[in-house]
Nucleic acid binder design. Structure first.
Lengths: 148, 148
DNA sequence: TGCAATTAAATTGTATACAATTTAATTGCA
DNA sequence: TGCAATTAAATTGTATACAATTTAATTGCA
């Protein structure tokens, strides 16, 4: 007999992560609504702010998202005139995503978000680092073995 | 000038949580596919296994989901004959969700999942508890002040 | 060098999430 | 007690996620 303790929501480890992830998206909303972007769109922009002009695949590798999610998301960012989507001339299969002037400028407006989000979380920097490092540990342990 | 360090994906605290949450859902999939349910559906069943017959609101309070998400999800569980949806006689606005025999039986098949998931995560029980307690801390700090 | 295998995005279909609104029932007070 | 206010689900509309498939381009080898 397996004790059913482990099937209780409160003893679950995964539910708090699922709930926290949604809560974080909620918290971001108040800032991102002003920029008229969603949290996944913000993540894409953040990757591009750090290094402009990347392929859909490169964005997907960093954000762990596939083209099924990214393609429509990027089309929405394109409609908002925040990014450009261009087929690579060297390889017509590849689509390169780059920031528009407006997309690059949005970085300034977003610069206060990390600090404000930190305040909203109500935990210490140490707790933040702990959470982050354990999350990374799991993600690395389970790193998609897609290649090889 | 705000240093743009904080706008880098790698220094983000929230991205690992978002990525981890999706990874966890992925890991569950291999087990839940056999039961023909999704992770959110599994969470609903888990709440009902612990205490059968709850209203949509009660499920929403525990899972932090609203009727916009729960109603269609519960209809799918109903279609799979895992739960019953009945209007309360005492208050016709309320819908009570209860397990069918098949829904209750699924608990046995699910009993091995927590243990197997733990092995897949690749972290210690201590790290698990740490992650869980920090997640709870943030969630409580930000507990929706909907009521009051 | 032709063509099977591979690769990159896009597409299709299903299932969440959630804001905003609607519908129907219930409460509680003037 | 009538009715405005409240409440519980459901509905509508938009935006992810992601499996599976399709389309189009490129590779690499017999």
């Amino acid at each position: 007999m397996v004790p059913d303790h482990y099937l209780k929501l409160d003893s679950q480890f995964c539910f708090p992560i699922y709930a926290l992830s949604r809560e974080i998206t909620q918290l971001y909303r108040q800032f991102l609504d002003q920029l008229d972007i969603t949290y996944p769109q913000y993540l894409v922009l953040m990757v591009l702010w750090q290094h402009d002009k990347q392929t859909v695949n490169q964005l997907g590798d960093k954000l762990l998202l596939d083209s099924g999610t990214l393609t429509p998301l990027l089309k929405r960012l394109e409609q908002k005139a925040l990014v450009n989507r261009n087929r690579s001339k060297a390889d017509e299969r590849v689509v390169e995503i780059s920031l528009t002037v407006a997309g690059a400028k949005l970085k300034e407006q977003a610069s206060c978000i990390p600090r404000e989000m930190f305040d909203l979380l109500g935990i210490s920097l140490e707790e933040m680092e702990t959470l982050k490092s354990i999350a990374h540990k799991i993600l690395q342990y389970n790193a998609r073995e897609q290649k090889g």
